[in-house]
Design a protein around this nucleic acid. Sequence first.
DNA 1: ACCTGAACACCGTTCAAGT
DNA 2: ACCTGAACACCGTTCAAGT
Lengths: 225, 225
Amino acid sequence: MGIMAPRRTQALSKDVIVKAATEILDAEGEDALTLKALTVRLSTGYGAIYHHVADRNDLLAAATDDVIGRIVTGPAPEPRQGLRGLALGLFDAIDAHPWVGAQLTREPWRPAVLDIYESVSRHLQALGVPERAMSDSAGVLVHYILGVAGQNAANARALAGSKTDRSTFLAGVAARWADLDPARYPSLHKAGTDLREHDDREQFLAGIDLILTGIETTTASAGDR
Amino acid sequence: MGIMAPRRTQALSKDVIVKAATEILDAEGEDALTLKALTVRLSTGYGAIYHHVADRNDLLAAATDDVIGRIVTGPAPEPRQGLRGLALGLFDAIDAHPWVGAQLTREPWRPAVLDIYESVSRHLQALGVPERAMSDSAGVLVHYILGVAGQNAANARALAGSKTDRSTFLAGVAARWADLDPARYPSLHKAGTDLREHDDREQFLAGIDLILTGIETTTASAGDR
DNA sequence: ACCTGAACACCGTTCAAGT
DNA sequence: ACCTGAACACCGTTCAAGT
């Protein structure tokens, strides 16, 4: 309740800024993260932020690295379960912070994606995938994970406006598929009518399993190439 | 060479606008597509464009639907080759128009992604994938394709600024991986030193094959579930 | 070194006015 | 119906000036 202009009590730092940005992103979505909103939340000026952070994109990337860095794990006792655990951890993190999904596909050379690739590679190694098959195997898994991440981000963006929750949203997608012209989209039309309940977390894991089976089958039968 | 203000000779239409937008996107990248740039290129005003098009995003989506709609194919004589052909067609299209890759992950309920999903489903059906495995199988393939699409878009964005071409860019990525701290990123470090020449088109196809093998192995051994 | 905030150079979108 | 372009409401970023 002083009379003077309220100077910040907590010293500004990149960490503090990234944390504030993360809170805005989680609460209000990607578009809500404006420099203006940050200055208000941190009761500071634009220059103070730019003193610690290169630009808005640097901020998004740093926040993404933070989230992913917490998920990525070392090798687990049982390799296949370890890989499934890593995949689910990433899925849940991206589900909780959908803006991460968008950012991952935007700057794939930043630590976040490197951490994912590295962690996937280690699990594959523990699984006994031979050296020569590593790059293709890790590649397909990482691309799949990033693909799902992007979809989750898109869904969240669509969800942000409306008031519907996730399961009714997915049911709405199924309903829209069912409404599609059966002549042009026969498979989707059928899928839409079949697919009343759609658990995309389970489907994500089913995809991981399909890919792992493909890797195992291929490397087991190609010992003599 | 008339004296009067040069009224447009060609009538404006959504098609004409989308075509102009595509040319700008291909030539100068995603950021270059501004409404201002469009009015200049079409020698018209903002309102004329908004009369045919809902907003900038509608424009990007329509351009994406155009590109993808030309690629998507019906079933081929040999199903597995047909699927590989579809995948390669999509890869090449996204390689030629990287902004498409970004847009696909942004609005997955638009015709572009529906067409991809539908086409993948048909090929899988021709391949003999049973009904109950369709949604997981098509899902993993589509997510993988969209993941690669997103990466291509990101690479193109990074490439846009610099003058390097694609192969030297990918070599640069490998070099950066090799430079990574071997303690924190042992797998990536090793991959970077190994991976001198990296053909991502070939790796994309290898991923498709791994997934197809996984689908075939899984559905073949699960006849009794 | 760290911070402030007015100013700058851009956006997408609207809308009263024209043909 | 179709088009024009000034005006509006926003952006991210810079920078001279302060402490």
